[in-house]
Computed example of a mutant assay.
Amino acid sequence: MGGRGVSGLAALVTAAALALAGCQGGGGDGKAVQQTAPVTKAAPSTSAPKPEPSPASSSPSPVAEPTVVTISDHTGTAVGRAVAAARASGLRYAVYLQGTGASLDGGGRTASSWGAGEKVCEQIDDPADRTPSFDVAFVVARDGRDCDGRLLHTPEPTRTAAGGGTSGGSSGGTSGATSGGSRTCAITSPAGNCYADGQFCAGRHHGLSTYGKGGEYLTCEQDSAGRWRWSDGQAG
């Protein structure tokens, strides 16, 4: 081969080398191009967002109504027993007279005194503490009347045909006190005792009759001096 052929082969080798370098350089300027790894994007989160905490309610909590302990109903039982139950429970109690308008809304006339054996006509409970007067109230009959307000007029005993004695009449109502005989005192003193002949009687008893301590028939009437006394109708 002549010198021309050698130089031509060298030129081909050089051209091939340059072509190879151009493919790797990408810019043809001979500088190496630094390849970077592809960036992988993170997949979007599929979890649900956390709920925001709800603010505390600004409305005030309801206030419970005051309540008072109640006792069992003592209507029809002795007022002394009812009062003892109220005291044992630490309740404020009151005793009112029947027919005077006692209620939770006020009114009513309190009894100045009463016999422990008197019957409770009505019981008024106040569990919601509506009235400052009492937690429980007991209503008793007025002297000379029953729980329905009727007058207690003990009928006069009727004489029997034989022996001239008397037969016991029935009383219009009782308070639990018994006389020395078999008859029951319909009207008693504040202490629960039967009256006796000659004792003064209260204004509310004027004209009423009852049996006395000895079983005698007494009427509240005026004596010769105009004073109201229990009398058996006989002088002395």
Rank of each mutant, 00 (worst) to 15 (best):
T77E: 09
Q24K: 07
G236I: 14
T14Q: 11
G236H: 12
A88P: 07
H74Q: 15
M1C: 11
D126E: 11
L20F: 15
V39G: 14
T77F: 07
K50M: 14
D125S: 10
S113L: 02
P38W: 09
G212Y: 01
G108K: 01
Y217T: 04
E52F: 10
T46R: 15
L218E: 02
S182A: 11
A162T: 09
P49T: 11
A82G: 04
D223Y: 06
T178S: 05
D197H: 05
G169H: 04
E52S: 15
Y217W: 13
R142H: 10
S182G: 13
A19S: 12
K31S: 14
G80D: 04
P190T: 06
P157R: 04
K41E: 13
S167I: 11
F138D: 00
S182H: 09
D232P: 01
T75H: 01
T131C: 07
T160F: 05
F200Y: 10
L97N: 00
A17Q: 14
R92H: 08
T100F: 06
P66F: 04
L91Y: 05
S170Q: 10
A186M: 02
S224Q: 13
S179G: 10
K31R: 14
Q35D: 08
L152F: 03
G181A: 11
I187P: 00
G5R: 11
R142I: 06
G181C: 09
C201R: 02
G168D: 03
R159H: 08
I124R: 05
R4Q: 15
A21Y: 14
Y211E: 03
V136A: 00
Q199L: 06
